[in-house]
């Protein structure tokens, strides 16, 4: 390390960084389980729900007690394509 020409291949360094970014992301999701999460959706809609899980490709958020402007939904699947952002307090 630090010696020009003796550096590890770019691909393996990329892969290492990828793994550490991913691990930190998965830990942040794990910390969110059971928390009250506020979702900012498209069309200016804001909803809150209890976070349960996501799938590994982060395409869906499985939530419970979804509070919407038209009532509370016991369980729901939020598609990530409908979400702009989510916020919680660990």
């Amino acid at each position: 390390p630090g010696v020009p020409g003796a550096a590890e291949p770019l691909e393996s360094r990329e892969q290492q960084v990828r793994a550490s970014l991913r691990e930190r992301y998965l830990r942040s999701l794990l910390a969110m389980v059971g928390s009250q999460v506020s979702f900012t959706l498209h069309a200016g809609v804001q909803v809150t729900a209890h976070f349960g899980a996501t799938d590994l490709d982060v395409a869906n958020f499985y939530v419970s007690q979804l509070q919407t402007p038209i009532g509370v939904q016991a369980e729901a699947l939020l598609r990530c394509s409908d979400i702009i952002a989510y916020t919680f307090r660990p």
């Binding site: 970014l21 991913r22 930190r24 989510y86 916020t87 307090r89």
Partner: peptide
């Protein structure tokens, strides 16, 4: 805090005045 390499989701942390924090993806 991180960017998920699968979804490119960015995770931001804000430190609040009362010592707690909020996390936004």
């Amino acid at each position: 805090l991180t960017t998920d390499p699968v979804s490119a989701n960015i995770v931001l942390v804000n430190f609040l005045d009362d010592g707690s924090l909020s996390v936004t993806g």
